[in-house]
Design a protein around this nucleic acid. Structure first.
Lengths: 136, 136
DNA sequence: CGGCTAAGTTAGCCGCGGCTAAGTTTGATT
DNA sequence: AATCAAACTTAGCCGCGGCTAACTTAGCCG
């Protein structure tokens, strides 16, 4: 009876790594105009080879476009995912700080939490930021 | 210059899968006295083979003990991890509900979030549950 | 007791996200 | 123009957490 529907083909769902990468790429482009792989190497603390593999997956999945030895750019889908992720990230981080968590911890925890927050929960956090704590 | 905000020092941490498994095993033992692999198969919606592989890793890592065709038991370390995970899970879930999130969503989101909540953030959530919302 | 079924095991495969080691390209500086 | 260091690519490896397919064991029941 457990009806175990195996929905394996979840190619429409970007991984957490994908979200982290497009967010970082968008930030780099916003800050410095372009994004080079070495910036991701530094930011994520992984090797160049790993960044390369990941970028290839993101390109295959239609989130980034790049060519050998060229800077990394985002596709329209990539840009959409990046701004979505960034918005979630900002709301979670601000919410945690409003909760009384230190800025440093809020930054760390929001990194992990942002990928697991549903629309409903995000809305509840946003409401707090806009209107204060619930039920007076 | 290199920001290197991201910390790779999670080697001492059990994986999220490990935490989910020991939590489920502890629940099964609490509810029915023993835990059989088929319960994990049903609960996580994965195959028997996958449960087997995972249990082997957990045994290698000293979290569970079992023998062929025998029920799954927790080691002391496994029990400690389970109750820790369960406590985190409960606090996060209750906090989300207090935030105004539906029970259903709180259950889903807390599953993902619990693995990324630091001691400090958990403490802040607990404080809210005990003493109400912060700063008057 | 013999069979059958559910539970468990084993072997082998895959993609992701890591790594090292070695080679290639680029671009700045001399 | 030649060199050199930094950036990048490629090849090959690993462990995790999934899977299928095929097999073995346990235990219930006729």
């Amino acid at each position: 009876m457990p009806t175990k529907v195996h929905q394996r083909t979840r190619s429409d769902h970007a991984s957490e790594v994908a979200e982290d990468y497009v967010e970082a790429i968008a930030d780099a482009i916003a800050d410095r105009g372009i994004c080079r792989a070495v910036e991701l190497v530094n930011q994520f603390g992984v090797t160049h080879a790993t960044v390369n593999n990941t970028i290839k997956r993101l390109q295959r999945d239609g989130l980034v476009k790049t060519a050998p030895y060229q800077p990394i750019e985002l596709t329209e889908r990539g840009k959409r995912l990046a701004s979505q992720s960034r918005r979630r990230h900002e709301i979670v981080q601000a919410f945690l700080q409003k909760l009384g968590v230190s800025a440093r911890t809020a930054a760390t925890d929001s990194e992990g939490i942002e990928h697991h927050v549903s629309k409903e929960t995000l809305g509840a956090m946003k409401r707090v930021l806009d209107n204060g704590w619930p039920t007076g």
